[in-house]
């Protein structure tokens, strides 16, 4: 396993953890191990929203720093850390990530406009017009894009 592939696996796990954290803080519907998660957005106070946002960002920066540092240290003795195949896989992952982001943003815009047209959320429970809804939508797209990026890295390392 190359340094880049090891990074992809560890980073994928970290971002899935961040996504689960985000979902448990913003949504409700099902109880899993004491945490509520589902398809209904729970309205939060402004202070709590700021706390969740900062928590996600700080955790992501720390986790990525630790993972990048650890994988670089483990691969320090190797003559070649990254080569053209790693770069090709990285480009494919970025493309997948961009595709997810474009699709998700289009669905959110469509949902908001369609909801405004009909006077109620098209998908019950998903209201993206409040502060909580906007914060959740943007964070979901950002974190989701990172999950897709790492998953595409892992997938391409396995099949290429």
């Amino acid at each position: 396993m190359t340094e880049s592939e090891r990074y992809a696996w560890l980073s994928l796990l970290a971002w899935i953890g961040i996504m689960l954290f985000l979902m448990t803080r913003f949504t409700t519907g099902y109880e899993i191990m004491g945490n509520s998660i589902g398809f209904t957005i729970v309205e939060q106070s402004a202070g709590r929203l700021l706390g969740i946002y900062l928590g996600v960002m700080i955790f992501a920066i720390i986790a990525e720093g630790i993972i990048a540092g650890t994988t670089a240290a483990l691969g320090a003795g190797k003559a070649v850390g990254k080569d053209e195949r790693d770069l090709m896989i990285s480009r494919r992952a970025s493309l997948a990530s961009y595709g997810f982001m474009a699709l998700a943003l289009n669905l959110i815009v469509f949902h908001v406009l369609a909801s405004a047209t009909y006077g109620q959320p098209v998908i019950a429970g998903l209201d993206f017009t409040s502060s909580t809804g906007i914060a959740f939508a943007i964070l979901f797209v950002l974190v989701g894009a990172e999950v897709v990026n790492r998953a595409a890295l892992v997938w391409n390392y396995r099949r290429t």
């Binding site: 190359t2 592939e5 195949r85």
Partner: peptide, 18 residues
């Protein structure tokens, strides 16, 4: 100047190098 995994992928014809 490549990784061992890249040589392996080229040998298995899973990856076409530059």
């Amino acid at each position: 100047g490549a990784t061992r995994q890249t040589i392996n992928a080229i040998e298995q014809e899973k990856y076409a190098p530059s």
